[in-house]
Design a protein around this nucleic acid. Structure first.
Lengths: 237, 237
DNA sequence: TTGGTTAATATGTATATACATAATGCTTCG
DNA sequence: CGAAGCATTATGTATATACATATTAACCAA
């Protein structure tokens, strides 16, 4: 009479991961101690070892557990989860807040490369290099100031682009695949140009994000974004 | 005569993930297009579907692929990988550079809670709150300035700790488990106290990291770190 | 004791298999 | 013609099984 019972085996491994997280949080599995092995937990929880492995593997990824062959799985001493800050397109960042995005080119052209940019781009020869100065707006208000350098040795097409209506980041994302990037964050005082562009006083404290992008072993671009004063990057961990 | 050939089936899924990454990078699998399904790739690569799934799942985690049931797997339009900044103990940060770490308490005691801290801690009542001012040294040089608030309502033990020889972060990590934290980054101008502690001019630009830590729904602590001028946080994506 | 070989063990990877689930697209019915 | 329903399909999850690999622990010889 009982029809085929409604199966509800959804995401067992996620449930187990949650249970393990709870045990760590409540110190049932104390920091530094070794937890029961996969086989034991599999039996206790009535699932296969593979499923337990997936759950614990997830926690290991998050940095809560340290797993080693033969040695077993132990709770890390100080579970410090990395805070992760997403750094994507400025446009997206603005539009996510519901405001209208705007882009204004200030200046673009080939330019001599200063020392610190040359270092970042790993340039030894003297390729043609494009420099673009621009600003990004959020709901009409200044949002960020951009100083962009593009390595013409790696991306010759960039030398002939009209940057007045198209931001370098978007052009590059659509035209150059990149493999990896170095990103750094620092604080800087606004100078004459950036304070004019951002509509703030000279000597304001600005959050500055720099990114150098590489295509294999060739550098593509180096960019410095200075956000308007008071800008805050958020992360939840 | 040929002995048992040396097996070398190490990490097939990682190799496949790498191959898939290459195809995306080289635009064999163009942005926005749907790639062959798991069964096809499994056959092409001579492995099981589960292994293909694991490899592609990894790329999906990295944000390069978008996978949906029935719809298939497609290459995302703009593969923007998140830059991730690790924020742990200042001590570790210093010692990783090979320099000697130092901690100096400047002031500690119960203190009235200013408005902006009250907001961060989500405080409505008037609990006793501890404030600790301190600085962190790297090889004898000022490294960071810390302004710490600890919610005595959540952590009463903190009201009786001697903070002269023990940094709040380390005490908290060893004595309070936390479940999650809000972290934010911003730039600030150094004031009289922080510039004295950091040995810099007033009005320098400082990278400021703030973190609010929660135990369940109770706030534990709010801290602001101001790094010495020129400090840079790095990330590779 | 020292040092190196060996056995035991917990995790890591891979396979075949089965069924669940979500989304698509086709069909059918009003 | 449009909405409802249904079959199809690609991914998602779980299992049992097998073997690989790293590391500890035990053992034995010099």
């Amino acid at each position: 009479m009982t029809g085929p019972e409604p199966k509800e085996k959804a995401k067992v491994w996620a449930t187990l991961a949650e249970e393990a997280r709870r045990r760590i949080r409540d110190r049932e599995w104390a920091p530094g101690t070794t937890i029961p092995n996969e086989a034991t937990l599999a039996q206790e929880w009535g699932v296969s070892r593979v499923t337990v492995s997936r759950a614990l593997g997830k926690l290991a990824e998050e940095g809560l557990l340290d797993r080693r062959r033969r040695a077993g799985t132990r709770v890390v001493e100080r579970p410090q989860r990395a805070a992760s800050f997403e750094v994507g397109l400025i446009r997206d960042e603005v539009e996510r807040t519901g405001r209208r995005y705007g882009y204004e080119m200030i200046e673009a052209g080939e330019h001599q490369v200063p020392e610190h940019v040359r270092d970042r781009l790993g340039i030894t020869t003297q390729p043609r290099v494009m420099r673009i100065l621009a600003r990004h707006l959020s709901g009409g208000e200044p949002f960020a100031w951009e100083e962009r350098w593009i390595n013409g040795g790696t991306v010759p097409e960039a030398l002939d682009v009209d940057w007045r209506h198209q931001s370098p980041n978007e052009w590059l994302l659509h035209n150059v695949a990149y493999t990896w990037a170095d990103v750094s964050l620092t604080a800087a005082l606004s100078g004459p140009r950036s304070s004019r562009a951002l509509g703030c006083e000279e000597g304001s404290a600005l959050l500055m994000l720099e990114r150098t992008t590489w295509l294999g072993k060739w550098s593509v671009t180096h960019v410095a974004y200075c956000y308007a004063p008071g800008h805050r990057m958020w992360s939840r961990s």
